[in-house]
Write a protein that binds this DNA or RNA. Sequence first.
DNA 1: CTGAAAGCGCTAACAG
DNA 2: CTGTTAGCGCTTTCAG
Lengths: 336, 336
Amino acid sequence: MSKKNITIYDVATEAGVSLATVSRVINGSSVVKQETRDKVMDAIQRLDFKPNQVARGLATSKTTTIAIVFPQSLFAHVKDMISGIGDTSRRLDYNVSIYTTDEIGDGNPIETVMEKVIKSRADGVILFNNEQIDEEIALVKKYKIPTVVIGYCVSNETMGSILVDAKKIAFDVIDKYIKLGKTDIVFVSPRQNLIRTEDIVEGIERAYQKHNLTFDKQKQVISTSTHYEKSYPQFLDYFKNHKHDLVFTSYDKEAVAVVHAAIDNQIDVPDEMEVIGMMNTSYALICRPSLTSIHVPVYDMGALAVRLLTKILNEEDIETKEVVLQHVLMPRKTTK
Amino acid sequence: MSKKNITIYDVATEAGVSLATVSRVINGSSVVKQETRDKVMDAIQRLDFKPNQVARGLATSKTTTIAIVFPQSLFAHVKDMISGIGDTSRRLDYNVSIYTTDEIGDGNPIETVMEKVIKSRADGVILFNNEQIDEEIALVKKYKIPTVVIGYCVSNETMGSILVDAKKIAFDVIDKYIKLGKTDIVFVSPRQNLIRTEDIVEGIERAYQKHNLTFDKQKQVISTSTHYEKSYPQFLDYFKNHKHDLVFTSYDKEAVAVVHAAIDNQIDVPDEMEVIGMMNTSYALICRPSLTSIHVPVYDMGALAVRLLTKILNEEDIETKEVVLQHVLMPRKTTK
DNA sequence: CTGAAAGCGCTAACAG
DNA sequence: CTGTTAGCGCTTTCAG
C-alpha cells in the first residue's frame, strides 16, 4: 500500500499530455502523432504502468472475459478442451473464468452459479452438454448473454454450438456390425457425458431400423459410473452371465472397465466380444489389449468454441452457428 | 441493448430510497432498518437486479477473483485440484480465472501471462510448481500480489505454500527397500511435475546415505515424457537389457508405462521387479497388475490453497504459511 | 491531432 | 438509520 497504484493520470502528467491521449495510445488509436505516442510509451515504460482492466471494463461495459461453466462430474471431458480454450482466448486476448456446478449441494447450484456469472459481467459463456443443460440454456437466454454450447445443438441470434455428429458416429459403427451379422450389441454410458446419450441411442436405433431389427433400450443400454472403482465391479458381475458381439461406450474409461471385466470372466476380447470406446484418451492406449476408440477433436472443439463466441460478440459474419467437427475411428486391439 | 441494464440507482428510485441505502442492503450492512431493507429487497426482486461486480471492483479495488496460472503440461495435476479450488472459492465467494502458459510460443509467455494477471487486478494468485516456478514467483513478488504456490516452498508476508513432504515420501519408500537389501532402484520422472523432482531425489539420496550407499543420479534417474505414446516405447526398449529391484515414478501414468513395458519384456512384476507410482489416480486402478501408488490429497491441496490465500488477503491470523499435507502409500499388486 | 468533461455503476466517508 | 457527495481508473464524445 505504500506506493499507490499508478494510473493513466500519472502517465499523462509524466508524459506531459492529457489522459485522453494516453488512453488513445494504449488502445492503439490511429490518430496520435508518432512523436507524442513515443513520449507516452516512454512514460508507460518508466512507470511500469499496467492499465486497470476493471476500470476499462466499467467504462466500456466489456470485461473481455468468457466464463466456462460445467458440473465437476464433467471434468474429464472439459479438461481436454481447456487447452484449446486457453490457447485461443489468450491469442484473442480474452480471460477465462471457470464456474463449476454441483458437488457442493447448497441450494440451487445452477441458478446460484449463473447468478455469479451475471454479476461478473462476463462477455460470453461456454456451456457443455450435461444433464441440466436445458436449465442452463434457459438461464443464459433469460439474461441474453451470448453463449456457445459444446455437445448440444442450439443456435439463435446470440447462441451457437460446437458439435460432433453423435448420431452418425453411432449409426456408422452399429450399421457396420449389423451388416456382419453381429446384432447382439450393448451401449454403456455414464450419466454425465459430453456427447448426448440420447443422440447416440438414436443413431443406434436407426441402424437397427435400417436392418429391420429393433434396439431394446431397456436391455441394451447399460448405465454406469464414471468411477472405475464402481464400474469395474459392476461389469465384473455383469459378465458372469452376459456376453455380446460388441459393447460400445461413450467414454474410454468405462470401456476399459468393460474390457478388463470381460477378460476376468474368461471372455476373449476381441475374439468373443469386441469393445469400442470414445474420445481416444490415454486410457485407450493404456488398456490391455489397447482399446479401439472414436477420436473426437477436443482441442479443436475448445478452440472453435471461443472463436465462435468471439465472432458472436463482435457481431462478425458467421457462416454457421452450428459447427460440427469430424470424428475418426482409431482401430486397435479390442476389435477385429 | 433494448432494455438498458438496471442499476443500483434504478432500484433506489423504485424503492424510494437513496442509492447508498441500496448499497448497504446488498452488502449486508447491519445498520439498515428492517422495514426499509424489505422495501429494497422487494425492489431488487421486482427489477431482477444483479449488482455489477465490475463497478464494485473499481470502487473497492477488490475483484474477488483469484487467478490460477500453470503450464498446459501440468494440466493432469492441476485438474485434480480444481475441484477443491472450485468448491472452496465458490463457498468463499471468489471467482477463479485460469491463465495457462507455454504451448503457444509467442514471445515470453510467463511475462505475458503475468501481465494479464496484473491487468485483471486479481486479488491473488495460485501457482503450481513447474520448471519456471522461480521466474513466476519473481514476477508475483515484483508486483506484490498475494499468492500461494502448490508444491514449492516459499513464504513471506504475502506468500504461502501448500505442500506434501516430497523428501520424506521418497526417503521412506527407498529406506524401506534398502533395508530389505533391495538397492537397485531407479527413479523416473517426466520433466513437468507438481512434486519437485529435486526434493524426491534428495530424499532418495538421504536414504542411500543412511545406509552408506550412494545414489547415482546419472544412472538412477530416468527422465521421460508425460505422453504414454512416448514413454511406453522408451521403456519397452529400456527393459530389453535392464531390470531393477524397484522403479519409483513421480506420476502414475509413467509407472503404467514402466509396468507394461517390463511385462512385455518378460519381467515379472512384482516378483522380479516392483513398481510404485505417485498421486493415486485412476491410472493406478486401471493398470494391470494394479499399481501401488502414493496417495496425495489433491482435492484438499486445492481447497487449502484458496483457503490460505483468502486468509492472506483478509489479513487473518495464520498459524503457518507453509502447510504440508499427509500422503499415504496405497499398496496394490505391483509391490510384494 | 489533442484536451476537457461527462459518465460507467458502485462504495464509503461524512453529515444529518 | 439514511442521504449527499466524492471518488475508483478508464473511455468517449465534443470542441478546438
